[in-house]
Design a protein around this nucleic acid. Structure first.
Lengths: 299, 299
DNA sequence: CCATAGCTATACAAATATGAATATTAGTTA
DNA sequence: TAACTAATATTCATATTTGTATAGCTATGG
């Protein structure tokens, strides 16, 4: 039995089709088909039922799947260890962070980074879902909640402050809210709960009332764009909102939420000079900008 | 990273050389070399140090080895499950048992077996060491101690009796021992402790004295052959010794040891019709011959 | 000190696996 | 019902992988 075929099995089972599995593994559909076919021949068992919509695991296939997943975990660990052993300051490092951090904050630091580590290339994965560091979907993540898993290296980096904002033109056409109870008279733009879910936001939404929440976005940028369209008001990160001429902060002394941001990597990877360099760079630069992330209220 | 290459890594690490690993995996030395080389390239890490005597793991390689072993365990489980799912009464079943059981007892049952299950082929692995059912070195084993591991299916099959024997010609030239204390005046042929180690034998050897133990064998057959060469006396299985015209049992009423024999297979495999058929056949035939295994004393 | 055994490394022909292109099938939608 | 979509199956030229044969290296034993 070819171990590699079990990886194929896993991909087919998880994606549901040969074609999708081939896309994930950078292979082709006929190849995947033949590999699964051969695996079945060697194991003398039917692993998938073929349909025109894809492949569905047989009961035996289901049983086997769990073991294949274990193998994948171990294979991932091996890749992490090997990466961790690489002491050269060359190669690629994948990071994941929010769209704003990735698209607006990070670029301002890149020229310095490039100067300091000319051999390193950065890949910034801006994805809304939390990428899996164990599967090495990313090497380093900036998270707004502290991950509790063992095997992770975590550094607290900044207090990221959020405040109430509205666009200036919106304020020209509406009453300016002066206290939290005024919020009931305004439309509110909020966040998709699959992305950004926390107790403070929930309480706020209760205060405002569901009927006033006119839109939900999966990103800070989306909310800011909605604000500039005069859709209403919202809570956004001060660091970015303050830079936006079109926006104005409301009730800065009464309302100032702060979330800790954390830089995270896997302990195996942290042994790598490459990963460590990027990790430390991120922590350093975030510390330098700490006061900016605190927003106008602390200026 | 190619998962199959990790299997190669495991084989090379365990055998110590590319050539030996190739033999084990049924591949060739250049292929193994290239696969390891490619794995190192993909992981960007040196995994082995090459010497003219073979390959030795680097520290990183050592770290990785453990994970590769985990993968192997899972791969083995997959193979067992697949085999267990095979409900056809066709194919090969590998058994392991002592040389006497395998070479002398079993063959007397084979024609009946063949008649009952024409599609099944048997492989009898006569090896002195205990084969690993988890690694599928064998599908079914006959053991003389009850395995304690979970996941195994175990059936008590027979009481296998051992008695004192000497060759008739030996007895013509030596005093016939009438009680255990007479044993001090005789040479004794015993068993290699890596193969057959148990408390009763130890006590007996103490009684006889190390200086009187003139030879050690790893198999019952070896001991019987030594007896017929008039090397001394020994303790052997009654079932075989009684059939041998050249041998005679000594002190049958005073000395009769019995060991339980067990038929064992892995729970995963027991689901297979093929394995179950052979397992049940073995248990059935051993039960039929149970009184024979009890030796002359019970006739 | 030479002969041998066992290993790795290299070269090249043969076997094998791959992917682009295409045919085929089965659901879904207008 | 016909057109569309997304999947699996098939074909074949091409690229890759493999094994045989061979050379080179290094310990070990008489």
């Amino acid at each position: 039995m070819e171990w590699s075929a079990l990886r194929d099995l896993l991909a087919v089972a998880e994606t549901g089709s040969l074609s999708a599995a081939a896309r994930r593994l950078g292979s082709s559909q006929p190849t995947m088909g033949r590999r699964i076919e051969q695996l079945e021949k060697q194991l003398k068992t039917l692993l998938f039922n073929r349909t025109s919509k894809g492949l569905i695991l047989t009961p035996v296939g289901e049983q086997i799947l769990g073991y294949a997943k274990n193998m994948a975990e171990n294979a991932n660990a091996i890749e992490r260890i090997a990466s961790g052993a690489d002491q050269s300051l060359q190669g690629v490092v994948r990071m994941t962070m929010t769209d704003q951090m990735g698209n607006y904050w990070l670029p301002t630091k890149l020229s310095e980074f490039r100067q300091r580590y000319p051999g390193l290339r950065l890949e910034i994965v801006v994805e809304n879902r939390t990428l899996d560091l164990f599967k090495r979907e990313a090497d380093i993540a900036v998270r707004f909640s502290r991950p509790q898993q063992l095997d992770l290296v975590v550094r607290k980096s900044i207090d990221y402050h959020y405040g109430f904002y509205a666009s200036k033109s919106y304020l020209e056409n509406h009453d300016r809210p002066e206290s939290l109870k005024d919020l009931k008279n305004h439309s509110f733009i909020s966040y998709d709960e699959t992305i950004f879910s926390n107790a403070a936001l929930k309480r706020l939404e209760n205060l405002i009332g569901e009927q006033n929440i006119v839109q939900r976005y999966t990103s800070n940028s989306g909310v800011i764009n909605a604000l500039t369209q005069n859709l209403g008001l919202s809570v956004v990160g001060c660091y970015f909102a303050d830079q936006d001429e079109r926006l104005e902060r409301l009730m800065p002394t009464q309302f100032d939420y702060s979330f800790n941001a954390w830089v995270v990597t896997h302990a195996d990877l942290f042994k790598s000079a490459r990963i460590k360099a990027v990790f430390d760079f991120l922590v350093e630069k975030l510390a330098e900008d700490a006061t900016d992330f605190a927003g106008v209220s602390s200026h």
